[in-house]
């Protein structure tokens, strides 16, 4: 019974992985690709991990604990990483595909870029002050 469930989970997880990778190749821009690959591949690999854990139930408890731990960690971290990459892609100016209908992040991205520029200006000013004081000492 448990083995049958594990086999089904394994198969469905593999299908999710392949579909996510096909989406990674076929979709038009970074944001679509990120959403396809992140959601599908994370869920698929989590299913594979849970299936691996189910094979360890009974005799091989370390395998169970390790795979469930890895599944929880993956579920928490993979979306965070993809979100960070997409955010940085938008801030650094990667354009949306032509077929996109709505863009709600424009204003916020401008604010983030303005903050970065302000910080860079402050660093520049501090450097100039240090140079001046060194010249004055010399």
């Amino acid at each position: 019974m448990l083995e049958t469930i594990a086999l089904w989970l394994f198969g469905i997880g593999l299908a999710f992985d392949v579909l996510g990778c096909i989406g990674l190749v076929r979709l038009p821009d970074v944001y679509n690709r990120a959403q396809a690959s992140t959601k599908c591949v994370t869920l698929g690999t989590t299913m594979i991990l849970v299936a691996t854990g189910l094979f360890g139930v009974g005799g091989n408890w370390p395998l169970f604990i390790k795979s469930i731990l890895c599944a929880v960690f993956l579920l928490m971290t993979a979306p965070v990483g993809a979100h960070a990459i997409c955010r940085s892609a938008y801030v650094s100016g990667v354009k949306l595909a032509d077929v996109s209908v709505e863009d709600a992040f424009t204003q916020r991205a401008r604010t983030i870029r303005a903050e970065h520029r302000q910080r860079a200006d402050e660093i520049e000013k501090n450097l100039r002050e240090v140079e001046k004081s060194e010249e004055a000492e010399a």
């Binding site: 990778c21 990674l24 990120a34 690959s37 993956l74």
Partner: peptide, 8 residues
């Protein structure tokens, strides 16, 4: 993104 997916 593709490297991240490959790692997964």
């Amino acid at each position: 993104i593709a490297i991240d997916t490959l790692g997964t």
